[in-house]
């Protein structure tokens, strides 16, 4: 096992001892991506895992004192409604529910150190005040809760549409939007980061299943399109 781990590419700044939930799929991802690319550019899709992204679970009622404190500490306003995201301070804040948000760190190297999540959570939480006199709201380090898969390429939406019932067409799902939904009955976040780029965030315990599901869903695009 040790050899397998050592072969994987570890993001700069991350400890070599950390093992991401879908690390065992890295080679399969590469092979599946290459196979779709070899079959033509029209439906090519590349998948990879972005491990160890810092994630903070935020609970605050928008407009409240707690929300203002979190926004100030985070450096980003909270999104105002369904599918909304906001960016700032090295985070993108995803709307999960009316009073629940997920701040996802960007891919800068300092964000991959293993103590980054707890440190950031403690920093933002301190803005809510001391224990005993705390403004209503909550900040929890959820970095290990979900892993991130990134699908890029013209076929990315076609792959996701096999398992997501939400309308992912650009007319209904714009770049920068993120939703909480199910992918093949697995609860995931689907986040559109570019015209042909989606991030799928399943919980760590579902990472292997979702990763293999994505590989399976991509197999169709490794063959010429049937007219």
């Amino acid at each position: 096992m040790a050899e397998t781990i050592a072969e994987l590419t570890v993001p700069a700044g991350a400890s070599a001892l950390r093992r991401s939930p879908a690390a065992q799929l890295a080679e399969a991802f590469e092979a599946a991506s290459a196979a779709t690319a070899a079959a033509g550019a029209q439906r090519a899709v590349a998948v990879r895992e972005i491990p160890f992204l810092v994630q903070l679970g935020l609970r605050a009622v928008p407009g409240s004192q707690g929300a203002a404190a979190v926004e100030a500490a985070l450096g980003a306003p909270l999104p105002t409604g369904h599918a909304g995201t906001t960016a700032g301070g090295g985070f993108t804040v995803l709307w999960i529910g009316p009073d629940e948000f997920l701040a996802v760190g960007d891919e800068s190297p300092e964000n991959f150190t293993s103590d980054r999540g707890p440190a950031e959570a403690a920093r933002v939480a301190s803005a809510l005040g001391e224990a005993g006199a705390r403004t209503p709201g909550g900040v929890v380090d959820l970095s290990a809760n979900r892993t991130t898969f990134e699908l890029t390429g013209p076929g990315a939406r076609l792959v996701l549409e096999k398992g997501v019932s939400f309308d992912l067409h650009p007319r209904a799902f714009a770049v920068g939007q993120a939703i909480v939904t199910s992918l093949d009955h697995v609860p995931v976040l689907v986040w559109k980061t570019g015209e042909d780029a989606f991030r799928v965030l399943p919980r760590a315990s579902f990472a292997d299943h979702v990763g293999r599901w994505l590989i399976d869903a991509m197999r169709e695009f490794a063959a010429p399109e049937v007219p």
Binding site: H82, P98, S165, F166, V180, T181, S182
Partner: peptide, 11 residues
């Protein structure tokens, strides 16, 4: 009321 139209299976 928060998320708009979704499949029954999500509820």
């Amino acid at each position: 009321p928060n998320c708009g139209p979704r499949d029954e299976t999500e509820f």
